[in-house]
Design a protein around this nucleic acid. Structure first.
Lengths: 358, 358
DNA sequence: GTGAAAGCGCTAACAT
DNA sequence: ATGTTAGCGCTTTCAC
């Protein structure tokens, strides 16, 4: 009755002790052999490995990590929505960088809810993640201040920290947005409809600031009349763009401030084309009731943007993930300078839609 | 020298013992208060909570879970590529379902490498995940057989297990693919180019089988002459389609067997259109050197497929994730019937590209 | 080369 | 309502 262990909780999972018993060695020797610590006779090592295989032993990482210092091999990533291809790509970059050092990524999505975000951060910290990467939906991170001091490297990705000093990787949103607007203005546009996501998001705010910069420089001071913030999902963006198109004096160009909004705008434009409200060749036929197809630039590159001929403000999303991971890894290796902010550049990619004339 | 603990490994992280000391209670009382177990005087509870906040206490989930039975609150998901929007959507469904029960998702991508897959599965099992969901890139899962018996619910997602009995959620690939081909044939096509991903993948094989069903029924026995397997990425698919288009007697329709291949095909078609090799109106002008744009149906729906007017074989990807999670949760709650396989239906979504005539 | 004992941080069992 | 003791599975001394 002493063997077998019973099926209390850890249902039949063999422990090191059992492996040792089967191999006829002490528990410590079994541990040494399995971890390849050396100082184990070759023959003994073989016996232990055989025993382990035989009973189906698998090291308990919980116990192992607890003993070693209470910290896991996990790195946490918190995002608003992992199904968003942008974050999925960032996560891919992080993961690849971590794998090279034997660390594993744990992801958690918050649906952009600051409360959920806090809960998930707590859960990850309780799990003793080695480092924590956050694409935050929240506007206040002061509660993370003492975590940062406790040796858990904290890296903010895509959205900057508020109320804490921490390593950060950002896109140059302001310049990128400015570039888009300058490009449209250079193309002859003055009436530019700007559609944005929730303006409480810092990235959106930065992009809006960039829009303002370029508009001011061009002397377009009433641009806010064609500014539509807070279109948070594809459907809202589609409706918003639809309304812009139906204005008595509609914009001749659109600038959409993230990938979801661009998707919504494309839907609206296509629908308008189908309805005959819009036509790329409208100007050839002054009798036509249809209006001319507006120019379009989208912030964020996206799959098939080339096929659709959509000009975008692009950047290296995977590189963003890699950079964030590296910042965290550097801290883990003891690098100890003040918080760093890495700003990644954007590129205007011309594919046709941004080059249409008024 | 006894207080403070030193900064050995767990750098300054307070333990329950320290909270108890600050609150002036025993460690067990502190535990009870923080876990809300009850049987603690209200005043004591307050003191403990204050102390915890004061010292910045955070429960060590490793220790807690080890003590409770050696199993974590994590559920593992292994996929070939989380950046693929299909898997990202599935993961979203899983995560939402798990969150409702206080479990957390750990994801790991394998880049479709069976070796990496095995390593990651091992790592997750060592971490004592409660359940393991796998969209496997491997063709043999016999090594998972004893895990399945050890109380870790195992669910195969999107791709079926080989060599183990386990719960599985699949798409009805065969029927879906057959539907696509039947639709094209009904539209008058006989020369249908079929472009597939790696044929070692079971999903691809099932889709190919479905293609074969429909072709045979229509008496098209030489379809394999226009069959192109093993186009594993977008670029390969683009090249492959390009070659199909340039055949002396090219296919009048294309069926692409997953979302990446569809993307490659769209690129090829668009490029051919730009080059003047292809024109939707070619049949109106018999003099034209351009050929007629082939019909196209893609397996897997994708973002903006509606804007592009691409007909697809779609299905509920998020639901797939939810179903997989539920199967695992049922097992955790003790449900104990034989391995179940859930097959989700597909739908042919007509958006124009699949309805073009030969 | 190998083993015995102690303890990582926490909670279950049994006191009181 | 609170405290004491033991121990989860492992690794770290330190002894042999």
């Amino acid at each position: 009755m002493s063997e077998g262990g019973g099926d209390r909780n850890n249902v039949g999972r063999p422990t090191l002790r059992q492996v040792a018993a089967v191999a006829g060695v002490s528990i410590k020797t079994a541990s040494r052999a399995l971890r390849g610590e050396g100082y184990v006779a070759a023959a003994t090592a073989v016996r232990v490995h055989d025993a382990a295989r035989q009973v189906g032993f698998r090291l308990n990482a919980l116990a192992s990590e607890l003993r070693q210092g209470g910290t896991s091999n996990l790195v946490g990533l918190v995002t608003g929505d992992l199904a968003n291809p942008f974050y999925a790509t960032v996560a891919g970059g992080i993961e690849r960088e971590l794998r090279a050092r034997g660390l594993q990524l744990v992801t958690a999505s918050t649906d952009e809810d600051p409360i959920a975000e806090q809960d998930l951060i707590d859960a990850l910290l309780q799990r003793r993640v080695r480092a924590l990467l956050i694409a935050s939906s929240s506007t206040d991170h002061t509660h993370l201040a003492d975590e940062a001091g406790r040796g858990v490297p904290l890296v903010f990705v895509d959205r900057p920290p508020v109320g804490v000093q921490a390593d950060t990787v950002l896109i140059d949103n302001r310049t990128g947005a400015g570039d888009a607007v300058r490009h449209l203005i250079a193309g002859g546009h003055r009436r530019i409809g700007v559609v944005a996501d929730l303006s409480r998001l810092a990235t959106q705010q930065a992009r809006i600031d960039g829009v303002g910069d370029a508009m001011s420089d061009a002397g377009i001071d009433d641009w806010r009349e064609l500014f539509r913030p807070d279109a948070h999902d594809v459907a809202a963006a589609q409706t918003t763009v639809d309304q812009l198109l139906d204005m008595p004096d509609p914009p001749t160009a659109l600038f959409t401030l993230n990938n979801r909004i661009t998707a919504g705008a494309l839907r609206a434009l296509q629908q308008a084309r189908i309805d005959g409200r819009l036509d790329a060749r409208a100007h050839r036929d002054p009798e036509s009731a249809a209006r001319k197809l507006p120019a379009l630039i989208g912030f964020d590159d996206f799959e098939l943007s080339d096929v659709l001929g959509v000009s975008v403000i692009g950047y290296a999303a995977e590189e963003m993930g890699r950079t964030a991971a590296r910042l965290a890894l550097d801290r883990l290796e003891g690098v100890n300078h003040p918080a760093q902010t890495v700003v990644l550049p954007t590129t205007l990619i011309e594919r046709g839609s941004g080059e249409r004339r008024p």
